[in-house]
Design a protein around this nucleic acid. Structure first.
Lengths: 77, 77
DNA sequence: CCAACTGCGGCCTTATTAGACCGCAATTAT
DNA sequence: ATAATTGCGGTCTAATAAGGCCGCAGTTGG
């Protein structure tokens, strides 16, 4: 059901989350603990394998100490 | 299942979408046509009644001619 | 060497979104 | 007055995200 054109954006979002997590030197399990999302799920998100909801975006943004808007800004420098 | 603390953010997001739609003088049905999302669903989104997915955010942003990141920026002036 | 940690994928159940359609009350033209 | 438009709520099914747990292969560190 996920449109082919959206897959790229899902991967970009995942890559951005991974980038931000690594910038804070957090392991999947540490971030998992911080945002109360199972580490295997975060792994799938970072791989762009699932189409997360707005509230999941909020949880991740909070744990990464960044605004939800920034989390979606994939055109980072 | 939606956390009470997220309801406010859902409403903010909805209000922002409504604001952007009205700025472009679009009716629900016109925006519906532009992003291929049922008008009743958009209505629910604007009311903060559903927790939309990332791809739905992408569709709305595209139709509203704004970046997904901007769509989430609820701290507009 | 051994122990701990790490990313990752599979599996399962339940809750909820997606997607589509209908109809109504209120508003806005004609 | 009448017709069209508009926002909105309800209903149904199918697809899928959420949430949780398990285990493994490959680091990393003691």
């Amino acid at each position: 059901m996920i449109r082919q054109s959206d897959k790229g954006n899902l991967k970009k979002l995942g890559a951005n989350i991974k980038r931000l997590r690594e910038m804070k030197n957090l392991s999947l399990r540490e971030l998992s603990y911080a945002c109360d999302i199972d580490n295997s799920k975060i792994s799938k998100i970072e791989k762009g394998q699932i189409n997360i909801t707005f509230t999941t975006i909020l949880q991740l943004a909070k744990a990464l100490e960044i605004s939800p808007s920034e989390l979606l800004r994939t055109d980072y420098d």
